[in-house]
Design a protein around this nucleic acid. Structure first.
Length: 859
RNA sequence: GCCUGGGUGGCGGAAUAGGUAGACGCAAGGGACUUAAAAUCCCUCGGCGCUUGUCGCUGUGCGAGUUCGAUUCUCGCCCCAGGCACCA
């Protein structure tokens, strides 16, 4: 009896071999072209889930394929190991974040190794270790020196009952997730990176990112949100400091009939001071501060405001404009003040109607006359200026520049560019992050930690309760220090850095993971490998992680560390693996294995099936691949993940179908074993003579499959269709009758080799095993990707579709090089076409070479 | 709400430059092999209709449009997902 496919044995054997031989260890020297392939490193949340497996299976196919294509491939893996879940685990299970994190890393590393991914594990990094974050602290100091890091007040979510700062994720419907009390906004001094200084470069460089998906670039451009307009100065009637406004609609300036200031803007309380309704204003400001920032500016959100008892002057009309504090204006965009033009802005229109404020039409549409008493909505289209003094009669689009010129001449305004992008707040009032290396001295102020004193280590002995101030602030031995400048007593900064900082430069560190000299990056090595040739990760990182990484790269360039401006040449954003979340009314989110017959296994209550969303530890809607690996082996899991959908598409998880992938690998195993004795010691066919038809067809299919799989892997990243094609080739091989004839054996050998080579990046273990069994001495993983012969792959006969008025009526088979004239002749001899055209008049014929002939006919 | 994507059989998906809709696989049904089961192999498989055919109509979220021809392009709508600056 033939030996059966035993994935566990095969996979463990080859994983050991690859490790022993250092197959995936790489270095800089070598004559091959370099290829840096990187997948987004995981947060070590506990166990690998299907989202990771999908991401890393895709990456591994590319890495192994590139290796077979002759590239010197860098394919590293590491851990984005600072973050909130470690602290949550500490609160829940009283386990130290470091212990929890390192245990998770060990587990997940084992899981990844069992998947057979081709990582160079010698380069493994973990961002929570001082060897990593010490350089980040150094970069912080350098950024501070350049003014790229600075401190300012900013709002945080604060729960007064827990006395702690909450992440957005920890606020559920405006309430604290732990105590259900109302969450307040609190002003805190926080550190920021001046990403806005790079806004223009980040924007213009998107044009250079030709290897990025357009949708990601569009999202980044919109996020940066450049708008071109003017600052306009509105003098106060009482002579105090004029209000400066940013507008992109200076053409509507004559229609500005009132002024709006963001409720949380410091100017609001200042202006209202001593006014009759000061108390009312203060109450309003308090109320708005509680409103959700996102909702507040929504189009259909109730617009609210309060009169500040004061006017400013329209600089062009000289008219008095009442000043209101409003909820739909944001303090941190533009100047925080907006000139309201109710006739030509919908939100201002609604506000004006509500508070009975004056309307002035300044743009007249071409087809109708606007009337302020009958208008039901703002007119936001183009038109001709009216009520606009010397600019009357101009098209509003033309008046843009002219009015801007006028404002500049008169000193009443200035052209200006505004970005929606805000500076990157990096302070976190948390323990499990990189400490910000600063010291506060009563005498010297803010003093940077001396470079030679880095790293500022995270202290170990800490109690994490989820309540009270930042954990570091509770440790006197950490907080109390001496000032590096004056030697007097001083206190350390107790905030840690946003974990996005670590992931903004880790790809550089992979190039010299053990570098101990400042700045932790060996320039020669980094410049050999960088930029990343192919980056692969979830679409959910389209904006923040990828934008921060681009920014940080430009900063490191300007700090003289790097010599390039963009870290990623080609980007593949994979869709998410989604699954519905399950919640128990008593126990919250549940893992799939905590549910039986739609009941919670802890308390027996009925579970609520939530919406389908990306797999995450928080939602517990994760699938652990281990059981699948145990059942079917890593190769099957890899094939299944790749076969289920194209990489960019979201994948709603269902384990239906994994049997099919397993069956396919079994079919591959069996067909090779069946032919083993016939093909083991024979050379593959590579001649030119005329073959009998079944062999000719098999060869054709073989070469077509090589062509198809090559282009699917290389150009299209369509692994699902690549696998389909290999399946078809395997099916074709099954249809061939076995024979001892030498020619057949040689052609079969060619096909089998092709199947195994094409399968090598996708299901590497089984391919490697069978490759050895058919008598190859060298490993498949380091062998060459197969070539195809165009002539062998080409079809000698093609099908031409015949349509009448766009509907398929017949098909004819013709030689591939048949000319149009002969095809038309054959078509008109086709019985079904003759019948269909019997009572019709031929109008015209459209011939698409090699594809179809459409006959347009009428009755 | 805003920004960005997506929607094709019972299911996952295919159709690569506007040109054969449903490749490949799953599930289901029928059959072969077997004492039996598993495994394997073969057949059927979008819907409706009939004269059961190399048949007709219909069909790619919904409604319109452009075109000889639209899953593909344009406009409007519905639904789903991602992001919205402290989840990573």
């Amino acid at each position: 009896m033939e030996e059966r496919y035993n994935p566990q044995a095969v996979e463990e054997k080859w994983q050991k071999r690859w490790e022993q031989e250092g197959t995936f260890t790489c270095n800089e020297d070598g004559k091959k072209p370099k290829f840096y392939l990187l997948e987004m490193f995981p947060y070590p949340s506990g166990r690998i889930h299907m989202g990771h497996v999908r991401n890393y299976s895709i990456g591994d196919v590319v890495a192994r394929h590139k290796k077979m294509r002759g590239f010197n491939v860098l394919h590293p893996m590491g851990w984005d190991s600072f973050g909130m879940p470690a602290e949550n685990a500490a609160i829940e299970n009283k386990i130290h974040p470091a212990t929890w994190t390192r245990t998770n890393i060990a587990t997940m590393k084992k899981q990844l190794q069992r998947m057979g991914f081709s990582y160079d594990w010698q380069r493994e990094i973990s961002t929570c270790e001082p060897e990593y974050y010490r350089w980040e602290q150094l970069f912080f100091l350098w950024m501070l020196k350049k003014g790229l890091a600075y401190k300012k007040e900013a709002l945080v979510n604060f729960c007064e009952s827990c006395q702690t700062v909450l992440a957005n994720e920890q606020v559920e419907g405006g309430l604290c997730w732990r105590c259900q009390k109302e969450v307040k906004q609190k002003q805190l001094e926080q550190w920021f990176f001046r990403i806005t200084q790079y806004a223009e470069e980040l924007l213009t460089d998107t044009d250079k990112l030709t290897g990025w998906p357009e949708k990601v670039l569009t999202q980044q451009r919109n996020w940066i949100g450049k708008s071109v307009g003017c600052h306009v100065y509105f003098p106060m009637e009482n002579g105090t400091e004029a209000l400066s406004v940013f507008t992109t609609r200076q053409d509507t300036l004559f229609g500005a009939s009132f002024m709006l200031i963001a409720a949380e803007h410091p100017r609001v309380t200042e202006i209202a001071k001593g006014k009759d309704n000061e108390a009312e204003v203060i109450a309003f400001v308090k109320k708005v501060k509680k409103q959700d920032r996102v909702l507040r500016t929504a189009e259909n959100y109730e617009k609210e405001g309060v009169f500040l008892g004061c006017h400013c002057i329209n600089p062009l009309t000289g008219k008095k404009m009442p000043i209101y504090a409003a909820n739909y204006v944001l303090a941190d965009y533009g100047t925080g003040c907006v000139m309201a033009v109710p006739t030509h802005d919908q939100r201002d229109f609604e506000f004006a109607k509500k508070y009975e404020l004056p309307l002035i039409v300044v743009i007249q549409p071409p087809d109708k006359a606007l009337n302020i008493t009958t208008m039901t909505e703002a007119y936001t289209e183009e038109g001709v200026l009216v009520n606009s003094g010397q600019f009357n009669g101009m098209k509003n689009t033309q008046a843009m520049e002219i009015i801007a010129d006028y404002l500049e001449q008169e000193g009443k305004g200035k052209r200006a560019v505004q970005y929606r992008l805000r500076d990157w707040g990096i302070s976190r009032q948390r323990y499990w992050g990189a400490p910000i290396p600063l010291i506060y001295c009563d005498k010297c102020g803010v003093v940077p930690v001396r470079e030679e004193d880095l790293p500022v280590l995270l202290p170990q002995g800490v109690q994490i309760t989820g309540e009270g101030k930042s954990p570091l602030a509770t440790l006197p031995e950490f907080v109390n220090t001496t000032c590096p400048q004056c030697g007097g007593p001083a206190k350390r900064e107790t905030d840690t850095m946003d974990t996005f900082v670590e992931s903004s430069w880790y790809f550089n560190r992979f190039c010299s993971p053990k570098e101990e000299k400042a700045p932790g990056l060996n320039t020669q090595k980094v410049h050999y490998w960088m930029p990343i040739d192919q980056y692969i990760g979830g679409i959910e990182h389209a904006i923040m992680h990828l934008l921060y990484s681009r920014f940080y790269t430009k900063v490191l360039r300007d700090l003289g560390v790097l010599n390039f401006a963009e870290p990623i040449s080609r980007l593949l954003t994979q869709g998410m693996v989604c699954k519905e979340s399950l919640t128990c009314p008593e126990h919250g989110y549940l893992y799939p294995n905590q549910v039986e017959n739609s009941r919670c296994t802890i308390c027996g209550r009925e579970v609520v099936v939530g919406k389908t969303e990306k797999m995450s530890k928080t939602k517990k809607n994760v699938i652990d691949p281990d059981t699948l690996v145990q059942l079917y082996g890593a190769d099957t899991v890899r094939v299944f993940c790749l076969f289920a959908a194209p990489p960019e598409k979201d994948l709603e998880w269902s384990d239906q179908g994994i049997e099919g992938s397993y069956r396919f690998l079994n079919r591959v195993w069996r067909i090779v074993m069946e032919h083993l004795d016939l093909i083991a010691d024979i050379e593959k066919y590579h001649g030119n003579e005329d073959l009998p038809e079944p062999l000719r067809n098999l060869r054709k299919k073989t070469h077509q499959t090589i062509r198809k799989v090559s282009s699917d892997l290389e150009d299209r990243f369509r692994f699902n269709t690549a696998i389909s094609a290999i399946m078809e080739l395997v099916n074709a091989l099954y249809l061939l009758e076995k024979s001892h004839d030498t020619l057949t054996r040689r052609v079969v050998r060619e096909t089998v080799e092709a199947i195994l080579s094409l399968l090598a990046p996708i299901a590497p273990h089984i391919a490697e095993e069978l490759w050895g069994r058919i008598g190859n001495k060298d490993m498949l993983v380091t062998s060459q990707w197969p070539d195809y012969d165009r002539n062998v792959a080409s079809e000698e006969e093609i099908t031409i579709v015949i349509q009448i008025n766009g509907k398929v009526r017949s098909r004819i088979a013709v030689p591939a090089d048949e000319n149009e004239e002969n095809i038309k002749k054959t078509v008109h001899e086709d019985e079904r076409i003759i019948r269909a055209l019997a009572d019709k008049i031929l109008v015209k014929e459209i011939y698409v070479p090699g594809k179809l002939l459409n006959i347009v006919a009428r009755d």
